[in-house]
Design a protein around this nucleic acid. Structure first.
Lengths: 184, 184
DNA sequence: ACTAACATGTAACCCGTTACATGATTAT
DNA sequence: ATAATCATGTAACGGGTTACATGTTAGT
């Protein structure tokens, strides 16, 4: 969808290799944009062909060489222009909601289990996000412009997490009445 | 991803044709599961081939005939079993967050515009959701089990909408300081 | 006859996922 | 030598999107 821009964005601050990018896409950038190394290597080649990235080989001691990519001037310009274009959104597809449409006495318990599990996962992630916020974005108002933007992306994740927790609580409360009154 | 189950779920209450399903996937079911008519027709054929749906032609007065599909017993069972399987989630990919990572003095105004626009859209959808809640799900506790699930899916959309609005407010407040202090 | 809406499709393409492959380096 | 990790890829498949195609009925 916009993997090209996600990669280029990752390269704004530092030049990175394919594997380093892939790791990024499991952490910072990956918080809201997932991808695999296979896809990334493909896209890197396309972007280099387009002249938006340049590639240089770097010798590493104790590890195989890596190909490090950096934004070219054309790449920076293309990225800057992209911001003014149309914004695509790919809404969440969560099979849990589909399952809820199929709720029955037979599966309430199981669904409750799933919600509980997901609540736990989201809580973990929230802890992480909050830690990052406390460490790096304590006073958003005083940040330089671009970092304000990065902070807002993080804030979006935090809001979403909190929202999900509160939804889980509502759901678990409501579903408890089902198992509670209907018996087993 | 799980289009098959989304379709079968839509057929739980009533038999529907391809075009009727497509319309559903722009309204009720479409609130959290999008699809196009092309995909739907394809999937319907697959499901019929599998024996999970049956097909019958229905004459309509004033319109071309339609092929109406209904769940077979095997289909209902497959759907019921599916609930106990693994749950896939495809998280949102929102280019707006990517754009925020690229925030600069040059594009703040534009980004503010985009956020404002999105806020409006989400607000509209929230009104719709709230209207549905008030009309059909005023007292969730007293609903039959399955409808409790459907309500929770709706509630999820409402929570998400509210979360987004509050995020927008935080974002717009923070970004106002940029244009405000930096001038134009 | 012509247009518009309805219903059903086919085909090409793009993107993402999964599975598999290869070479380099270090540690045992 | 062998195993483990790192870095980089290729190939096949599947799902989803976009564009295009075809027939039916009603209204003018």
């Amino acid at each position: 969808m916009a993997l090209a821009q996600a990669i280029m964005t990752s390269l704004l601050d530092a030049d990175l290799s394919g594997s380093e990018l892939a790791r990024d896409f499991e952490k910072s950038m990956g918080f809201f944009w997932q991808s695999t190394h296979q896809q990334i290597y493909q896209e890197l080649r396309k972007l280099a062909d387009k002249g938006w990235l340049n590639k240089r080989e770097v010798n590493q001691s104790g590890k195989p060489n890596k190909n490090v990519y950096g934004l070219t001037l054309a790449g920076r310009e293309a990225l800057a222009d992209w911001v003014f274009g149309p914004t695509k959104v790919q809404p969440t597809k969560d099979e849990l909601l589909l399952k809820l449409y199929n709720l029955s006495d037979d599966n309430v318990e199981h669904v409750i289990g799933e919600i509980t599990h997901r609540r736990e996962e989201v809580m973990q992630r929230l802890y992480l996000y909050e830690a990052i916020r406390r460490r790096h974005y304590d006073d958003p108002g005083s940040l330089p412009v671009r970092h304000k933007g990065v902070y807002l992306a993080l804030a979006s994740g935090i809001h979403q997490g909190e929202q999900f927790l509160s939804w889980c609580d509502e759901a678990l409360t409501l579903l408890a009445t089902v198992t509670g009154s209907a018996g087993h």
